[in-house]
Design a binder for these strands. Structure first.
Length: 607
DNA sequence: ATACTTGACGCCCTCTGCTGGGGTCCT
DNA sequence: AAGGACCCCAGCAGAGGGCGTCAAGTAT
């Protein structure tokens, strides 16, 4: 059996930095059982295996095992054995295959699944099954059983390109694609993608590979990658949308000579210029929706190989850039640098010229500047509220919408896990509802009484009732308070000569009250012509009036309360402007029962 | 051509202050 | 009984931290 030369692509997918998957290198060769075992760095198949079997990878790392590729030749297939993948027996459980259609059970030995570790189910085939791509296809088609839909889709892609000659398979391939929700790509593009993703260099006979899991020699527990050849001559038929063709499409008019003789390239869409054709070509792609680099695991598409690589790393958990001072690791070096600034070096290069604030990122300084300028670019369409950043507006919108968002009800194939427990949902709405049950949990229980609350700070304050602690002392009279705001109120009232207390005026008799509720209570029973406010007579000044209340006939107190509440929501703290009786806060007149979910959804979408 | 670096945008989170409602006690 | 003051509590919003991602510049 002649040793097959494996096309080793350039490292595009998952560059492993500082990740000691292959701790020992590489020159060592050994021959066993007629199989040439060559220790090498990550090869495409190996990398793919890392992508797909991340948990396995973790297992391998955990055990400090060595990852070795073992290429063999078998007709037009190659088997790569990751020979050091060993399961610990208690980690796995065997399952029967009765769920497989009888015609598909042939060749299938067992299904091995690692319990409770998030490991995707692996399909183990007996060796004979690998002889038949058809059988591989049949097995892969059991999408309703596996959680490996994405992997299967990738297999289907490869197989379609590879076994177009496999009579009778094509229909099955198509139905598979449909069943998995796969967006079937044009063949030429698909292959080009695979070339790009798999890193096969052009100009020579290329191979695409099919990943299959199977037992190794002599029953060893190994992952076997079945490599299937794919004739890449069809690459010449790449469509114009192929990224490799983009450069050819660059029109000469797109570039010109600058004064200094240096050639620059100008984008005719946005005016972007660059002296480098590579940058120019890359920029041009940003004007199209073309995303030719598709993740074979989740089918998400990306513009560049680098983005795809980083994305795949999120699947594999590969975070090559490790922080030397903590356990954090990141996909890109930039993330690591930033993390170190936040957590370790505290370097804050961006300094505010108006205060002492400094930030790690320029965007944070920009956001901070708005607190000086008062700029609020993000306007709520349902009330007068405007925020300084998009997130605050989104958060504010929740006060209008509750969670009645219909777009949360779509079924999603991807499992969404609860942040707080192990529950899993396929509907975002259900997930949110469930998570709210955690949010509403009064997790903070007083150890002295039955009081419980949602926020720790509330428990802290409450506990002072039992301990008698009053940590907030008035500097003027030494009176102590349990809460800071009580001290503030006390100080304003008794020691701040500039303080003008708020007085709520009864709309019927004009009597003043310090609390809205008290005024309302009074107003319910007040008859015009009754007593005049003694308080007013004492010279208290009117500073602010609630939107008080001459409600339309039939509107009851709840309506008044709602209006007050709406006014509250529509006004930023500290900006509460006086509102005359009967007057509504700006914008709040729109906020009534006619505000529909659709309106809110529209606004959320616009965000 | 590709990898690496840098800057920017956006999302989500926590902490904190402010505000208002409900309850209770005192006058 | 009514009014006023105080306490407790909860929700909203301001501010900022931390990180994921993408685009463009630069180096190899």
């Amino acid at each position: 059996m002649a040793e097959t030369e494996i096309s080793v692509p350039s490292e595009q997918f998952t560059k492993i930095k500082e990740l000691e998957l292959v701790p020992e290198v590489l020159e060592e060769k050994a021959e066993e059982d007629g199989v040439c075992r060559v220790k090498e760095g990550p090869r495409p198949g190996e990398l793919e295996a890392q992508c797909t079997y991340e948990a396995l990878q973790a297992k391998m790392l955990e055990g400090g095992q060595e990852l070795v590729l073992v290429p063999t030749e078998e007709s037009q297939k190659q088997i790569l054995t990751l020979q050091t993948v060993h399961f610990v027996s208690e980690d796995v459980e065997l399952q029967d295959i009765s769920w497989l259609a009888p015609e598909h059970q042939e060749g299938v030995q067992v299904v091995v699944q690692q319990a409770g570790s998030g490991l995707q189910p692996l399909l183990w085939l007996e060796e004979g099954s690998l002889q038949s791509l058809h059988q591989c296809l049949a097995v892969s088609g059991q999408e309703e059983v596996y959680a490996l839909q994405e992997m299967q889709a990738a297999q289907v892609h490869v197989l379609e390109g590879n076994t177009a000659a496999a009579a009778g398979d094509s229909e099955f391939v198509v139905s598979l694609a449909e069943n998995t929700g796969l967006i079937k790509l044009e063949k030429g593009l698909e292959e080009a993608q695979l070339v790009a993703e798999g890193g096969f260099s052009g100009g020579r006979e290329e191979q695409l590979f099919l990943l299959e899991a199977g037992p190794g020699d002599e029953g060893r527990e190994e992952i076997i990658l079945t490599m299937s050849r794919l004739n890449m001559e069809e690459q010449e038929d790449k469509p114009a949308s192929d990224p490799a063709c983009v450069e050819k499409a660059t029109s000469p008019k797109d570039h010109k000579k600058a004064k200094g003789g240096e050639r620059t390239f100008q984008c005719d869409v946005c005016g972007f210029t660059s002296s480098r054709i590579s940058s120019f070509n890359r920029h041009k792609k940003t004007h199209s929706n073309e995303k030719p680099h598709t993740c074979h695991l989740c089918l998400k598409a990306f513009r560049t190989v680098t983005l795809l690589r980083n994305h795949v790393n999120t699947h594999t958990g590969t975070r090559p850039y490790k922080c030397g001072d903590c356990d954090m690791a990141f996909v890109t070096s930039g993330e690591l640098v930033r993390h170190r600034r936040y957590k370790h070096t505290h370097e804050k290069p961006f300094k505010c010229s108006m205060c002492k604030y400094a930030s790690v990122e320029a965007s944070k300084l920009k956001r901070h500047i708005r607190s000086h300028t008062g700029e609020r670019p993000f306007q709520c369409g349902l009330c007068s509220y405007a925020s300084k950043d998009t997130y605050k507006l989104k958060r504010h919108m929740r006060t209008h919408s509750g969670v009645h968002l219909r777009n949360l009800h779509a079924y999603k194939a991807t499992e969404m896990k609860c942040r707080h427990c192990s529950a899993v949902f396929h509907e975002r709405y259900a997930l949110i509802q469930h998570q709210k049950t955690h949010k509403n949990e009064k997790r903070f229980q007083c150890e002295h009484c039955s009081y419980s609350c949602k926020q720790e700070r509330h428990l802290t304050v409450h506990t002072r009732i039992h301990t008698g602690e009053k940590p907030f002392a008035c500097l003027s009279c030494n009176k102590c308070f349990r809460q800071k705001q009580l001290l503030n109120v006390h100080f304003k009232k008794h020691h701040d000569t500039d303080f003008i207390p708020t007085v709520y005026e009864c709309p019927k008799c004009g009597r003043g009250f310090s609390r809205w509720t008290n005024m309302r209570k009074h107003s319910e029973k007040c008859e015009p012509g009754q007593e005049k406010s003694a308080t007013l007579g004492e010279g208290r000044r009117m500073r602010r009036r609630k939107p008080a209340v001459p409600k339309e006939a039939g509107k009851e107190d709840e309506a008044a309360a709602e209006e007050a509440s709406a006014a509250k929501g529509g006004q930023s703290p500290g900006e509460a402007a006086p509102v005359e009786p009967g007057e509504t806060m700006a914008g709040t007149e729109d906020l009534d029962e006619d505000v529909t979910c659709e309106m809110i959804l529209d606004m959320m979408d616009k965000l």
